[in-house]
Write a protein that binds this DNA or RNA. Structure first.
Lengths: 250, 250
DNA sequence: TTCATAATGTACGAAATGGTACGTTCAGTC
DNA sequence: GACTGAACGTACCATTTCGTACATTATGAA
């Protein structure tokens, strides 16, 4: 009985053609038929759950996401979600952590040390802007977490550790620029980071309302390019000692 | 029976001291006692519901908010919510519209026409920044709406109409500045508005995660002041033809 | 092989939740 | 005063939703 139901629900629908279901079913009900057995694969199961959960939470929020729906979209069952993740909130926290982790990984690919300060800063800002643009799920998770007053991120030491390095990169570039006499002094790296983040984040987080309110298709490629230029220009103008470099006039 | 229960649930708990409840109850159960009668006050009821609903939705989101809880915090009943607002989503849309309306009202108080361009722009940016800071509920509603892909704001012509004027103000100031030779030309008012909005919005929307991640108390008054200065400075430097005016050195 | 424990599946329960059926009262009009 | 539609209240229902009890299988160690 157990074998039968499980086979129908999971395996056959995935692995076997539908026409086979009926005959296999009866065959299977004779307990432990053939060599076909269940495979335990904890890592795969957990990864699968995390993948789906991240998607669902980022799309619908903590209260909007449904455990049953997550389970359905998974190759495993609801039982397994609770087995590995305790409850809905823990699952959400893990998904949040995963989002930060993935983003941080990509960020680390950026290597600025060999570039001169102005070039490095330009690169950093442009990269951040585009990177946010390509990580809407992450942006949404952060939005959702802020709706929850950061109640979950507070519990996560992992996330804090992860992002500590982000400002350091900027700090190094900025300091090199100051030393070289091209950046004006007395700016705080974290505040600079705040400014860059704000512009890049808002571009994704508020695209729907902004576009709608001003009847302006913010997502249109030409507008995205203009915005990207604006952001880069704006930060540079703010940091540079003299706005000497060419005026791109957009 | 009906009279009794209603009185206990709503009126007495609000209007009368608790000790009076018991005796009034029996008294009331003799149908239509004394001159005490129900008052119909549709406007008040609706306003009351809107007030509570806005609070709840902005705090917990569309799916997180509970109709029962909204009803409880109201002076009226759940029945009235459905009577006036059809269903949860309609109520949410109305709350969203209300949020935009209120914010827009305050914005209109700003009168920039009599100021010279630089002063006017400075004022506008500073005002926007502070205004957002003082409207966290509005910010949250917008965040939530973006989580929903702007699905509801799409249905609202009201909101679009409301905000059309916001960019106009900026446009006027900018044009005056260009004509006076103090602002550089070829910038789009809407894109300028986008930049100002991004910085002001992010300051509120992401305060929790940002503070947590970088162990930096963004809400601390001194930091808020520094950020405000940065934002104003940044926009001015971007728009001004020459960054001639004093360097506040933050 | 035996056995212990980890991993997995099924079915179900209790509470929460959006929404409604049904009734009563209010307030203005004739 | 009678009447009518708007305004309001109570109790309830159907469904959803998180979570769990219980049973079974997989897998590695002794």
């Amino acid at each position: 009985m157990y074998e039968m139901v499980r086979s129908v629900n999971l395996w056959h629908t995935v692995v076997l053609p539908p026409t086979k279901v009926k005959e296999m079913t009866t065959e299977m009900s004779t307990r432990l038929a053939k060599g076909r057995t269940r495979k335990n694969d904890p890592e795969r199961v957990q990864a699968d759950i995390m993948r789906v959960a991240t998607q669902e939470f980022s799309e619908k929020g903590l209260s909007g996401a449904r455990i049953d729906e997550i389970a359905e979209k998974t190759r495993t069952s609801k039982r397994m979600i609770y087995y590995y993740f305790k409850d809905k909130e823990t699952l959400y926290l893990k998904a949040l952590e995963r989002s930060y982790q993935q983003v941080r990984q990509q960020e680390e690919a950026l290597d600025l040390d060999h570039l001169e300060p102005v070039e490095a800063l330009t690169r950093l800002v442009a990269f951040t802007f585009e990177h946010h643009l390509n990580s809407p799920d992450f942006i949404r998770m952060v939005m959702i977490e802020n709706i929850h007053h950061g109640r979950f991120i507070e519990q996560s030491d992992l996330i804090q550790t992860l992002n500590a390095g982000a400002v350091n990169e900027l700090e190094k570039v900025y300091q090199r620029g100051v030393d070289a006499g091209v950046f004006r002094p007395n700016l705080e790296a974290i505040e600079l980071h705040w400014l860059i983040s704000a512009l890049s984040f808002f571009n994704v987080s508020n695209r729907y309302t902004f576009s709608r309110i001003f009847s302006w298709d913010q997502s249109a490629p030409e507008n995205q390019q203009r915005l990207a230029s604006h952001v880069v220009e704006m930060v540079l103008r703010y940091v540079l000692k003299k706005p000497g470099h060419s005026d791109p006039a957009i």
